[in-house]
């Protein structure tokens, strides 16, 4: 179980997390759902160790062993699709590139540059890169934004097959329906509905 206790974080005058306490499952696929700007991304960033909280504690997560998918794709314009996967793989796992391209349904696009990809393709590549990096916990911020529902469903099942716990944020009903647990949130400050 991932235990969040009394987490507090402010951006200037805006309190995003106000003594938030929450228990999240550490297996299966967990979704955090809520309106834009309610603080879901901030919570994921705190879990990944990318944004330090002002006070409170998180247990059950090692930030150094998480894989975080940013809300933006953050692809490198000068690297090809295949190179994006290679960049996060250790040398011994370089042979996995075709299977990660298949994971993202980007077979045949290995030599393409991000500028040649559609928004959905770029998102799938960003997700595949994050999943290829791997870790004890995958933290995915809007992983299927711009991806059609059918494909998102297929990719979600592939994520499940990776056998690593996943916490994701999403607004898409089709995605939420396939998750093992859904936390409905509101804010700011972030709170369970």
């Amino acid at each position: 179980m991932i235990q969040i206790r009394d987490l507090t974080l402010r951006y200037g005058d805006k309190t995003v997390l106000d003594r938030l306490s929450l228990d999240l499952p550490d297996e299966g696929i967990t979704a955090l759902s809520g309106p834009s700007g309610c603080g879901k991304t901030t919570l994921l960033r705190v879990l990944a160790g990318l944004t330090p909280s002002e006070s409170g504690a998180v247990s059950g997560v090692d930030p150094g062993r998480t894989a975080f998918l940013f809300q933006e794709d953050r692809l490198l314009p000068w690297r090809t699709v295949g190179q994006h996967i290679v960049d996060v793989l250790p040398k011994a796992r370089r042979g996995e590139v075709p299977s990660w391209l298949a994971f993202a349904e980007l077979e045949g696009e290995g030599g393409a540059y991000p500028a040649a990809l559609s928004g959905g393709m770029a998102r799938r590549l960003a997700l595949a890169r994050c999943a290829a990096l791997g870790g004890d916990l995958l933290l995915l911020d809007e992983p299927f934004a711009g991806v059609d529902e059918e494909r998102a469903g297929r990719m979600l099942e592939r994520l499940r097959a990776l056998d690593a716990p996943v916490i994701l944020t999403s607004h898409q009903t089709a995605v939420l329906e396939r998750c093992d647990a859904v936390f409905r949130l509101d804010g700011p400050p972030l709170r369970l509905v």
Binding site: A48, F70, L133
Partner: peptide
């Protein structure tokens, strides 16, 4: 800076 944050989160070495 977003790319640099990505590099840190994805455990890129300094050289990489």
């Amino acid at each position: 800076p977003q790319l640099l944050e990505m590099a840190g989160a994805y455990r890129f070495s300094r050289l990489r």
